[in-house]
Write a protein that binds this DNA or RNA. Structure first.
Lengths: 216, 216
DNA sequence: GTCTATAGTCGGATAGAC
DNA sequence: GTCTATCCGACTATAGAC
């Protein structure tokens, strides 16, 4: 089942080398802050190769997002399938299904959340729309439905807001907002990723299950 | 007490016009995506004026962050002073002191949270460090202390993590992550800002006050 | 498919007149 | 303080040889 070629990646094609180099650079320096020259130099390919394999710098970013967003959200769907099959709609387990596929990414792609962060807040509307409609919206809707079964006391819009609060927490710790480094210092390195994930789920599950109204 | 010049802003100086135009452009298109020519054109000032009043494009962004981060965090400190004076350490009230100064910003500066978002995740380390050390770190530390008095069952590091989850939720809804528009649709326009703030505080207060351990 | 060479544009910054 | 004019480097994209 496990192909050894996935990890060691021998005999990588020019196209893949471009994708890998560009992905890291875009995550770190942003689209406008990354030149094709940086990418081709880092990937050890010729400058013209980008416009040959992709058609433009923008189409390259497009391809990068599709390559990552597809597998992550398919995995989320699988985990949701299992929850629905079992009939056990528990908030913690549903949230786990959302965050686990990202936490399970290898450390060698630890920059992917930063890339997604840019998509959420920084990239152009068109870029966001393409990726969101294709990969994220169906997943988000299904999570909303599952969570309402787990916490039926909330209206649909109330739940949608709380899901957004959860996504904010999740995105923040995944993208490693620089604040984390300054506030938590060495603590962060010491905390195994698994513990961070459990802390996040604990926090968000309590928030999502909070009673409905503020005033009696 | 209230100066009418604050709102109508008559006879704005060249320097201020540059600050205003650049702030909006940087928030929308990012530092690399904004040229000095866009800024001076939008501000109706000469191209050379930027390098005269500030010294470089980077120093201009510096000035922009200082102009906003100062007042917001001073207001937070005031609200914290009031809490400490009253001796009523209630999680909801402490969280309110953190978010209120931002929610109270006029709609005409609704782009400021987006600008802060870029600082958190996108700008250079140097830019972040300058602003964080000067404006945010002292505030964050005080909030951590106050929250631990309100929820003493948590260790310092546990609380720091939960504060980070809260900040993620807050930043996400303030920056209006594009997801909000797509998921919540018209609902967002209809929800008064005050209601959003209360929902956020309700969610985060429950999360922060969640019991300590996952397993017994 | 891969390269070199270059077209064509736009960027930040500054010199120097007023 | 404000302007015009300009330097010079860097950028995306492509044409055309191999």
């Amino acid at each position: 089942m496990i192909e050894t070629t996935v990890l060691s990646a021998p005999a990588q094609t020019t196209k893949d080398r471009i994708l890998d180099a560009a992905e890291l650079l875009f995550a770190d320096r942003g689209f406008d802050g990354t030149s094709l020259r940086m990418i081709t130099s880092e990937a050890n390919v010729n400058l013209a190769a980008v416009n040959y394999h992709f058609q433009s710098k923008e189409a390259l970013l497009h391809a990068i997002y599709d390559r990552r967003a597809g597998p992550i959200n398919r995995r989320r769907m699988e985990l949701l399938d299992a929850i629905e099959a079992s009939g056990e709609f528990v908030v913690e387990r549903i949230l786990d299904a959302f965050v686990r596929p990202v936490f399970e990414l290898g450390v060698e792609v630890g920059h992917v959340p930063r890339l997604m962060m840019r998509l959420l807040y920084v990239e152009t509307e068109g870029m966001f729309q393409h990726v969101f409609e294709r990969h994220f919206r169906p997943v988000l809707l299904r999570f909303g439905v599952a969570l309402r079964r787990a916490a039926p006391h909330l209206s649909e819009q109330e739940m949608m807001w709380r899901v957004q609060f959860f996504i904010g927490s999740f995105a923040h710790v995944m993208a490693g907002g620089r604040v984390l480094k300054f506030v938590l210092k060495d603590e962060r390195e010491a905390s195994p990723r698994d513990l961070i994930m459990r802390r996040l789920i604990r926090f968000a599950a309590a928030g999502i299950q909070a009673p409905k109204e503020i005033e009696a």
